[in-house]
């Protein structure tokens, strides 16, 4: 068991390193850099010598490999460097923006899971009726709605028409309701689809017939026997979808004017603020890898068949 855990952690570290290297190479391949974009502006009236000096300060003039080694070294000590645009350490920017995005993403994810489970169990209970066809077509609808459009529509309907959720000076929780919904809807769709399919598939297994033949009620069979087996494969997908959630947060935060990693990323991209982008990539990759690591390590506890056999 320990060997398995160590191997999985080793893999996770490897993935993080690969993400760092790949993003470094890609970001360096872009023409120009943040220093040039900011200080070549004629308003500053800087001479080429002065610019070269600033470039040396930000350590963007060394060889590619030297820069790579320097930023990898800094990263290992927890130093993400300076944001050229804002002139503050990137870690300070992350400290401000990360909690907001994590709250949004976790709430969005939780809502998506509830939504998906609701759809799947409704579909399972309505087996054999027309309602079922309707329920089963909802995920396809959810997945085809663009996030930005959904956000705008939700604001239109709930804030302006129904005046249920204020947009001007909302409370800390009120301001989250619509963004969380916007984020949850597209994520819930694939979860619901897979859960519905698994429930239907498990329903035909003979151990379900045996449970019914024991005299167990419909609800008991569904929750104790069918659901426990059906959620297992969903777990993997859920881990992967969390990555999509971070991407979705960029659009959602922009639409709702929230500050967070999403809006930070958007600003950094338009100003080619490489240190910030690099940090965002690393932090997202770390969260993604951590979640999938947890999923992998949780499997043997949820499915006894995956537990390494002791001594056998």
């Amino acid at each position: 068991m320990l060997k398995f855990v160590l191997a999985r952690i080793g893999q996770a570290v490897l993935v993080l390193w690969a993400a760092f290297t790949l993003s470094f190479v890609l970001l360096q391949a872009m023409p120009g850099d943040a220093v040039l974009i900011k200080f070549l502006n004629p308003e500053y009236g800087l001479s080429p010598e002065q610019i070269a000096e600033i470039r040396a300060d930000y350590a963007v003039d060394g060889s590619l490999f030297a820069q790579y080694a320097a930023s990898l070294g800094n990263l290992l000590t927890g130093d993400f460097g300076y944001s050229v645009q804002a002139g503050v350490p990137v870690s300070a920017q992350l400290a401000v923006n990360l909690p907001a995005t994590l709250t949004l993403a976790s709430l969005g994810f939780a809502t998506a899971v509830i939504l998906a489970a609701l759809l799947a169990f409704l579909s399972s209970f309505s087996a054999g009726s027309r309602l079922r066809d309707l329920i089963q077509s909802i995920p396809a609808l959810f997945i085809s709605i663009p996030v930005f459009w959904l956000g705008i529509m939700l604001i239109q309907i709930f804030s302006f028409r129904l005046k249920l959720v204020p947009v001007i000076h909302p409370g800390p929780w009120e301001s989250l309701i619509l963004p969380v919904l916007t984020l949850a809807v597209p994520i819930s769709a694939p979860l619901a689809q897979i859960l519905i399919r698994n429930l239907d598939e498990i329903e035909t297994r003979s151990f379900v017939s045996v449970a019914r033949a024991k005299g167990a009620s419909r609800g008991r069979v569904l929750f104790r026997h069918v659901a426990r087996n059906a959620v297992l494969p969903v777990l993997t997908i859920a881990g992967v979808l969390f990555g999509e959630l971070l991407a979705g947060a960029v659009v959602t935060e922009t639409v709702f004017g929230l500050s967070g990693i999403g809006s930070l990323t958007e600003r950094a991209v338009s100003h080619q603020d490489l240190a910030v982008l690099q940090a965002v990539v690393i932090v997202s990759a770390a969260i993604f890898v951590a979640i999938n690591l947890i999923v992998d390590l949780a499997y043997p506890f949820l499915d006894p068949r995956l537990k390494p056999r002791a001594g056998a």
């Binding site: 003979s206 151990f207 045996v210 033949a213 005299g215 167990a216 087996n229």
Partner: peptide, 28 residues
């Protein structure tokens, strides 16, 4: 109804199924 049958199934009439491997819940 299925609900009424639940009282009979297992108590009055029970089943020995065909495929022993598929007929037990793998996670219980």
């Amino acid at each position: 109804s299925q609900k009424r049958l639940d009282a009979v199934r297992g108590a009055v009439v029970s089943l020995i199924p065909q495929d022993p491997t598929g007929s037990l819940n793998p996670v219980m």
